[in-house]
Design a protein around this nucleic acid. Structure first.
Lengths: 340, 340
DNA sequence: TTTCAACACGAAAACGTTTTCGCCATGATC
DNA sequence: GATCATGGCGAAAACGTTTTCGTGTTGAAA
C-alpha cells in the first residue's frame, strides 16, 4: 500500500520547503525555472494529486453540490439528476445525492449533514411529508447561513430561493385541450388529493381547459386518489359505468390502471377512450398501447437548476440579484393511447 | 447571513481556549462540570455543528462512500443505490454518486477525483467501454493506495477486491427450467453479443438448462442483438415464423419487443407463447400482460456491497482478510406472461 | 511548612494546502 | 565601498478540528 504523496513528502525528498513545492506546482514566478522543472517532474513521476479535503478546508469551498430528492427509484428524478450531473461536471463540480425517502426527518438530517461543510449549495425537491407538515425551518436556516439553495419540481412558494418548475397547470391544460381537439366531450380526471401541489395545479389546468372550451365541469368525473397503494382499485371503481370518452391522469401509473380498467370493461384505448398521462417515463414508451403524455423534460430541469446554483456560487454579484423562477415548458408527446 | 459558528468563536465569546471548548463538547472529564455546562448550553443555543471538512482532514476519514455506476437512468441501478444508501446511512456514512455514462474516460476521471480525499472507499460497476477495453489500471491504482473497493454486478474477474454479483447463469437456468416445466419445448433466447459479460452468462444458463433436460440446442433459436437501437427490428425479424412456444429474454426491453412482435403475428402471450425476462423492473409489473421475470434483488445487492465496504473501512483486521465474493440469489417472479 | 496528587485549563502540533511576508545573497547603481 | 533593487526561497499563518502535553492552582497529607 503506497502512501499518498503530499507536498510535505515531496519537499523532504527534494530538500526544499513545502511552500516552494506548492508554488512550483502552481507555476509561481517566484520559483526559478530550474527547481520548478525538477519539482514538476518529480510530482508527475509519482503521480501527485492534491488532497481535495485540504483544499476545501483552505478555500472554504468544496466544489460539490448536494442534491436531496424524495426518492431515487423514480425515473423522473433520475433524469433530473442526470441533467444536474452533466452541467455540474462540466463546471468542475461533483454531485452528492441523498434521498429523503419522502420523510421530513430524513430531509432535515440530510440537509444538516451536508450543510456542515460537505457542499457549497443545494438542489432539492421537498419530501411529501414536508409539504404536508408545512415546516420549512431547515430550508430557511441553510439559506440564512449563506448557502445557495435551488428548489425544483416540488417547490415551496414562501421560500426565498431560486426555483425551477414546470408549468403543471399549463401542461395539464395542453393535455386536456388536445383531448377536446380530437373530439372528446366527457373527459375524466384522475388526480391526487390536494396537498400534493402538483396534483392541485394539474387539476386546475384540467378545469381551466374545460372552462375555456365551454364544457361544464362535472365533479363526478374527477377522482382524487387517496391512497397510492389502493389506487388501482379506486380507479377501477371510479371508471365503472362512467362512460367517459377520455381520461387525463396526473401520472403514468394512474393512466395505466385506467387503461387496464377500461379494457376489463371491454373498451378499447384509443378507439373508445383516449388517455393522456402527465409524466413521460419508460413505461409510456413501452406500454401497449404506448402512452400519449406530457413530457416534463427532467434533464432540462436538472441542467437549469445546476446552472442557477453554480451561478450563485461563482458570482459574487449574483448573490444580491433577485431570485429567479425558471419555468420549463412541457410538451405533448403523441403516441397511441389517443385518437389521431 | 449568519457566520457559521466555530470552536474559535465560541472560545472567544466565552473567554476560554479552543481546546477547552472542544473537550467540553466531547464530554471530556478534564473539564469541570461548570464550564462544560456553560459551553454546551452556548453551543446548543447558537446551534453549533462541527465542520465536516475539518474533521475529515483531521481524521483522514470522510465517512463517505463513492459510488460509480454506468448510468443512473436505469431502474436496476437505482435500486442498488437505494440499498447502498440505506445501510450507509445507518452506519453514519453518506453516499456520493457519479455516473460514468458507460465511458471509460469518465470512469477514470471520477475515480481519480473521488480518490483525492473525497471518499473513504468505492462501490462500482464498470462501464461497458471499460469492459471492452480491458484496461483496469485505474482500479488497481486505487486499490494500491489502500482504498477499499467493492465491485458489483459488472465485475472484473482479475481485480483483487470484494465483489457482489448475482448468479446470472443460475438465474437464466431457473427461467428456462421453468419454461420447460410448464411444457415448453421450443424455447427462443434473445440475448446480447458476448462481450457483455452478463449476456454471456445468461446465455450459458440457457444452454445448460436445455442440456440438462435433454433438449437439443438449436442455434437458430438464439438471437444475439447487435445494436440496441435496432433491437426492436432485429427481434421482429428473428421471431418471424420461428414458431417458438417460449421466449427467454435477457432483459425487460427485449421481452417486451418480443411480446409486441408475437402479438403482431396474431399470437397470444401467454396462451400461445410464454415469455420470461431477466431483470424485474417497473415495466414488468405494469405491462400487459405483466411479465414473469427473474428478480435480481438490486437493493439486497447494494446493501451487501455497502456492508462489505464498511467492514473493510472500520475493521483494521478485515483489511488483511481475503476478498469475498457474495452471490445474490435471483428469484423467479411468476406473473402473467407465462402459462400456469 | 513543605510536598504532592488531583484538578482545570491552555498551548501547540497535526491533518494538507495556499499565501503573505520576510530574509539573504547577488549583482547593479551611485 | 555603500546602497539598493531583485530574484529565489523559507517560515508561518490560516482553514476548523482533536489530542497530547505542560502548567498553575488547589487542598490534603506528611
Amino acid at each position: 500500500m503506497k502512501k499518498r504523496l503530499t507536498l510535505k513528502l515531496i519537499a523532504k525528498e527534494l530538500d526544499v520547503s513545502v511552500s516552494t513545492v506548492s508554488k512550483a506546482l502552481r507555476d509561481s514566478a517566484e520559483i526559478s525555472e530550474d527547481t520548478r522543472q525538477k519539482i514538476k517532474a518529480f510530482a508527475k513521476l509519482y503521480n501527485y494529486k492534491p488532497n481535495n479535503i485540504a483544499l476545501s478546508l483552505k478555500n472554504r469551498k468544496t466544489k460539490t453540490i448536494g442534491v436531496i430528492i424524495p426518492e431515487i427509484v423514480h425515473h423522473y428524478f433520475t433524469t433530473v439528476i442526470s441533467g444536474i450531473e452533466q452541467v455540474a461536471n462540466e463546471k468542475g463540480y461533483h454531485v452528492i445525492i441523498c434521498t429523503s425517502n419522502n420523510s421530513f426527518d430524513k430531509e432535515v438530517i440530510n440537509l444538516e449533514i451536508l450543510a456542515n461543510g460537505s457542499t457549497d449549495g443545494f438542489i432539492l425537491s421537498v419530501a411529501k411529508e414536508t409539504q404536508q407538515k408545512g415546516d420549512y425551518h431547515h430550508l430557511t436556516e441553510v439559506i440564512e447561513q449563506g448557502m445557495p439553495l435551488v428548489m425544483f419540481d416540488r417547490v415551496i412558494e414562501g421560500i426565498n430561493c431560486d426555483k425551477v418548475i414546470i408549468d403543471d397547470m399549463l401542461g395539464a391544460k395542453k393535455a386536456v385541450k388536445h383531448l377536446i381537439e380530437i373530439g372528446c366531450k366527457k373527459i375524466g380526471l384522475i388526480t391526487t388529493i390536494d396537498y400534493v401541489s402538483v396534483g392541485k395545479l394539474r387539476t386546475r389546468g384540467y378545469r381551466e381547459a374545460l372552462k375555456e372550451s365551454n364544457i361544464p365541469i362535472n365533479e363526478d368525473l374527477i377522482l382524487k386518489v387517496e391512497d397510492f397503494d389502493q389506487s388501482e382499485l379506486e380507479i377501477q371503481a371510479f371508471l365503472k359505468d362512467k362512460k367517459v370518452d377520455a381520461v387525463f391522469a396526473v401520472n403514468e401509473h394512474f393512466a395505466i390502471y385506467a387503461i387496464k380498467a377500461l379494457k376489463e370493461q371491454g373498451l378499447d384505448v384509443p378507439r373508445d377512450v383516449s388517455v393522456i398521462a402527465f409524466t413521460d417515463g419508460e413505461l409510456s414508451k413501452r406500454f401497449m398501447p404506448s402512452l400519449t403524455t406530457i413530457n416534463q423534460h427532467g434533464e432540462e430541469m436538472g441542467a437549469q437548476a445546476a446552472r442557477l446554483l453554480i451561478r450563485k456560487l461563482e458570482n459574487d454579484e449574483a448573490e444580491d440579484e433577485p431570485f429567479e423562477t425558471i419555468i420549463i415548458e412541457t410538451s405533448l408527446v403523441k403516441r397511441n393511447s389517443t385518437k389521431h
